[in-house]
Design a protein around this nucleic acid. Structure first.
Length: 282
DNA sequence: CGTACACCCTGGCCGC
DNA sequence: TGCGGCCAGGGTGTAC
């Protein structure tokens, strides 16, 4: 579930209760997620003051006042819940998939849930952000200025794999997942099956614009659900969003409204579902 | 190096 | 209601 817009939404929600706060207590309920937690994780966090939360690709970055950063990846099923300690007065019991808790000096408890445990947490010195193994190979941020048609064209050149697959490669562009790749290609009118290197300069320009548009609209949608619809249990990261093609096999293509024969198709590429409109994605 | 695929893990849904 | 099979938004390791 969590791709760039969802992680960004989580970051914004957590910022309100974590930025500038001291970590009063950290609880680990198991030794690992997808990989083990860093050595002495709890001790290295407790008592530290948090700086300003940021994000790189699908990683949440929590800077500490001793020059270390905590890296958090939500994997496929991770989410964060904000709990007000005054509301529950210690009677809350941890759910089966509540693996980590961060309690702050502001009276909030942030709970990391991840049923499938494909997420991870790691630590990285602020000076190593450019060299850390998890961050080093990441491509450009799609919403940054340096994600340009020229940069994408260079990354696509020499790649014979389908454009769908290549856009999922985090070294090409960082933060897209299966949903937003489908949405972006649909919006740009480009077939997911095209060899990446076969895209023309004009198509690549369209694709860059589409990626930007699709992602920023999703971030906006996340922001509004954050404001208007904070869930009762405080869960962040799951918000309703209307997709044009994703999971809409058999429905009419919203970009081909004049044609009642234009229907969303589903195919499997590299073992993952692709949703597309064969009429206008060429 | 680029590509294809199995795999990590749990839960939800569908058909029988 | 129970059960097997299939599916899921991510990333990595391995083999070719």
């Amino acid at each position: 579930m969590p791709e760039l817009p969802e992680v960004e939404t989580v970051r914004r929600g957590l910022s309100e209760v974590m930025n500038g706060r001291v970590l009063r207590e950290v609880i680990l309920r198991r030794p690992d997620l997808r990989r083990p937690f860093p050595e002495n994780f709890v001790v290295r966090l407790e008592g530290r003051r948090i700086g300003v939360l940021s994000r790189r690709a699908k990683y949440l970055i929590m800077p500490l006042d001793d020059g270390w950063n905590v890296l958090i990846h939500l994997g496929m099923s991770g989410s964060m819940a904000i709990i007000d300690e005054n509301d529950v007065s210690g009677e809350r019991q941890a759910g089966r998939h509540d693996h980590v808790e961060f309690a702050t000096d502001g009276g909030k408890r942030i709970v990391y849930r991840d049923p499938r445990r494909f997420g991870l947490m790691d630590m990285c010195a602020a000076s190593d952000m450019g060299t850390h193994p998890l961050l080093r190979t990441l491509g450009p941020e799609p919403l940054d200025e340096n994600f340009t048609a020229d940069v994408l064209e260079a990354a696509l050149s020499g790649r014979s794999s389908p454009i769908k697959t290549v856009l999922l490669d985090q070294t090409v562009v960082a933060g897209l997942g299966n949903i937003y790749v489908c949405e972006s290609l649909h919006s740009a009118g480009i077939s997911p099956f095209r060899p990446a290197a076969s895209l023309s300069g004009r198509e690549i320009e369209r694709l860059v614009l589409a990626v930007r548009e699709v992602l920023s609209r999703a971030v906006e949608a996340g922001g509004s659900t954050l404001r208007d619809h904070r869930q009762p249990d405080g869960t962040l990261g799951y918000f309703q969003h209307m997709f044009a093609v994703y999971d809409r096999e058999g429905e009419a293509c919203p970009l081909c409204r004049d044609r009642n024969d234009a229907v969303i198709s589903r195919a499997v590429q590299s073992g993952r579902s692709t949703f597309y409109c064969s009429r206008h994605q060429l």
